[in-house]
């Protein structure tokens, strides 16, 4: 069973890696990340050069915070903003199955639906993790350029590793939510649209206007609750523990739904 899962997951990874759309989209997202960080380098470097003797930084006008905490958070959030785009890769990966009869071929090769979904989820999760790791590495490199004159060890400090680990966790789990939704909807476009709606729910703060508990259940809000540090100007809707539960539950439920749907429907 384990060897069957490994070979099926390996085949799924090959499917992902040999799809031009996935490679193009990944390249665009990584390029966009580099571009956005490059634009901020001079402003951030200037802010770092003005860190006070007691270790305070003013990254935004009027907001003075402990430099180490603010810069570690910046490291994570600079990667986190790419999570708006990473689910698109997941949608393209899942959506390929529903083009040109690919699902039929996949089921001829791996007819056990549960095994197929498991292998697909493992492969998609692995690919998303590798892309997220590249994004995290780029953020780390830019952070080093920014802080090398003040504290060159900061980008690889324990706090930085923890922040990056939270980002990687969110990047993979949020991607898997979109992946499973796309598998259920059987359409890349619908997968992206549903993800966009969930994102807008957090951005617009509509659920938060009713109750923070409702907002805390939305994936992007949970990601924000996991990665960001609460402060005076930033109120979060739940703690990191709650966020992890939400972020694990969403892909779990969505994947089980996708497996049930794949098992019950004909492969058309």
């Amino acid at each position: 069973m384990v060897s069957d899962t490994v070979s099926a997951a390996r085949a799924e990874l090959t499917k992902i890696a040999t799809l031009r759309g996935v490679r193009l989209l990944t390249g665009v997202i990584v390029g966009l990340h580099v571009l956005m960080l490059a634009q901020n380098v001079s402003a951030e470097t200037e802010a770092v050069s003005k860190i006070t003797a007691d270790g305070m930084i003013e990254r935004f006008p009027g907001i003075v915070r402990p430099a180490r905490e603010a810069l570690v958070e910046y490291l994570a959030t600079s990667s986190f903003q790419m999570c708006l785009f990473l689910p698109c890769i997941a949608a393209v990966i899942a959506g390929q199955e529903f083009r040109a009869g690919q699902l039929g071929t996949s089921l001829l090769a791996v007819p056990r639906r549960g095994l197929l979904i498991g292998a697909k989820t493992l492969a998609a999760g692995g690919f998303l993790l590798s892309v997220a790791a590249v994004i995290a590495a780029i953020s780390t490199a830019f952070m080093y350029v920014t802080v090398k004159g003040w504290n060159p060890g900061l980008p690889v400090s324990a706090d930085a590793w923890i922040a990056q680990a939270k980002f990687l966790t969110y990047a993979v789990l949020s991607g898997l939510i979109t992946f499973a939704i796309t598998m259920v909807a059987r359409s890349t476009l619908v997968g992206i649209l549903i993800t966009a709606v969930l994102t807008v729910l957090t951005m617009s703060q509509i659920p938060a206007a009713f109750t923070p508990a409702l907002d805390a259940l939305v994936p992007l809000s949970a990601g924000r609750n996991l990665i960001l540090v609460p402060e005076e100007s930033l109120r979060l809707s739940a703690g990191p523990g709650h966020a992890m539960v939400v972020l694990v539950t969403w892909p779990l439920l969505a994947t089980v739904t996708a497996a049930v749907a794949l098992g019950r429907r004909d492969a058309r």
Binding site: S3, S7, A8, R10, A11, E12, T14, K15, T18, L19, R20, G21, Q96, R99, A100, G101, Q102, L103, G104, T105, L107, L108, A109, V110, A267, R268
Partner: peptide, 26 residues
Amino acid sequence: ALLDGAGPVPERRGIDHLVWMAQSNR
């Protein structure tokens, strides 16, 4: 099996289509 409605993704290369199928069945 060769079935109508069970084919490769058009953007994939022929060899890649066969390689993933081969990997899935060792």
